[in-house]
Amino acid sequence: MTVPDVHAALRGHVHQLGGPAAAADELDLFGAGALESMQLLELITRVEDDFAIRIDERDVQTGRLRSIATIATLIGERRGRA
């Protein structure tokens, strides 16, 4: 899966969970109110299932799920490590 594909897939999930249809890569999903805590949990399970990676509490606490760009970077790192 290419980087643009990852971004597109994430954008689709964000939209399905109630966020904007074409969220900008750098948009702060939570600061902008696009997603809330329950949608975050749903997004995490979807990312874990789609990309076969594991996301832990520290990733959430350190803001690595703040935007599509940061999530894509996290996915890239975890898949690269795998």
Partner: peptide, 9 residues
Amino acid sequence: WTPVAMRLR
């Protein structure tokens, strides 16, 4: 919230 919710996600 985060520690509990992450374990039960």
